[in-house]
Simulated scan of single mutants.
Amino acid sequence: MESQHLRDLHDLQLRREARPDGPGCRVERVGAVVRQTGPAHAWNGVLWSGLDAHDGPGADAAIAAQIAHYRAAGLSFEWKLYAHDTPADLGDRLLAAGLAPDDSETVMVAEAAALPRGVPLPEGVELRAVTDETGVRQVVEVHERAFGTDSSRLGRQLLDRLAADPGTVTAVVALAAGEPVSAARMELYPGTDFAGLWGGGTVEGWRGRGLYRALVSHRARIAAERGHRYVQVDAADTSRPILRRLGFLTLTTTTPYVYEV
């Protein structure tokens, strides 16, 4: 794999030509910006900005237009800024406009079919596909225990997707004696080469036993079976070394800039 080619393909298929990721959502291109707007519990934000590298005032105007759009809808939103986006000082301009940066993540990609298969689970642990409200509650429980954050919004998004378009999302929970101890989901992007791995989390006490690797392997197999060549992750610092050992390639970094209404 060649990183520049993959980065360009990622930008084209998942950002510039992005499709709505849930019911009630719409993706539109306004000037040099591609954004998604949906219900309050959906992901709302800017996916792509092809802003002129030398037009600072134009960038400021584009930022102001997005703020006005989402404020009019009463929605908080996120501007996903990638390290190679222009102008080079776009992050500073977002900050000056009132958007606050969250933790940066590393965009990593691997060929789905090339990843290890059959990564063993710890003794007594089984994987179960999430198909109903009970499974979604277990995913939410794992996320809240693993990350210490309110994950009710994730639960609503996942329920929406499972009800409206189950072929574009898959989720799995790892159970130990019936207790959910790890969970993850995968977004399948129809018509693209990519599937996105999201939300891999393991509760304290079960970390370091290979559950994260097993969930990556499980989802990569499904992605390959459904015709997606690559799997992509926005990786936190804790996940990056594991993914690198599995064979993932680093493409760039991304930082969410958040505007709260």
Rank of each mutant, 00 (worst) to 15 (best):
V139D: 04
R16K: 15
R213V: 10
I67Q: 07
H84M: 03
A18H: 10
D160G: 09
R35K: 04
N44K: 06
H5L: 15
Y82S: 06
V216A: 09
G45I: 00
D132Y: 02
G196Y: 03
Y70F: 15
Q36P: 04
P190T: 12
G178K: 01
L90F: 07
H143T: 00
A176F: 12
A53Y: 10
G58W: 02
V169S: 09
G196R: 05
Q138S: 01
L99S: 05
A223C: 06
D60T: 08
G45T: 03
E204S: 15
T255Y: 05
A110E: 04
T37L: 14
E260M: 00
P20E: 12
Q232H: 09
D193M: 05
H54A: 15
T37V: 14
V231W: 02
H218Y: 13
A236S: 14
G208F: 09
V169D: 10
D52T: 00
L215F: 07
V231H: 03
Q4W: 03
A53M: 12
L115G: 07
L197V: 03
V30E: 15
L197F: 05
R15Q: 12
R221G: 15
P166G: 13
V107G: 03
S182P: 05
L154N: 08
V136S: 13
S3P: 11
E187W: 06
R156S: 10
L215I: 04
T252P: 05
R245S: 07
A40C: 09
G91S: 13
G201L: 11
T254N: 10
V173W: 02
T134Q: 15
R207P: 15
Q66I: 00
L246Y: 06
S49Y: 00
A223S: 08
A177H: 03
R71A: 12
H10E: 14
T255R: 06
D52W: 01
L81P: 07
S182F: 04
P23L: 14
A83T: 07
L94V: 01
F77P: 01
G199T: 02
A72P: 06
A32Y: 04
V125S: 10
M186T: 06
T106G: 02
T37K: 05
L75I: 04
D237M: 02
G227R: 03
E260C: 00
E111N: 09
V139N: 01
V30W: 13
G178H: 03
L158M: 11
L90A: 11
E105I: 00
T202D: 14
E2M: 08
A100N: 06
D102G: 10
R26N: 11
G58Y: 02
L95Q: 14
H69Y: 01
Q66C: 04
V173H: 03
W198K: 07
V233K: 02
A195F: 02
D150L: 00
G191D: 14
G50I: 00
E144R: 12
R153Q: 05
E123Q: 14
W79A: 00
Y259A: 06
H5V: 13
E187K: 08
L9K: 11
E133I: 02
L243N: 01
A88R: 15
D160N: 12
E179C: 01
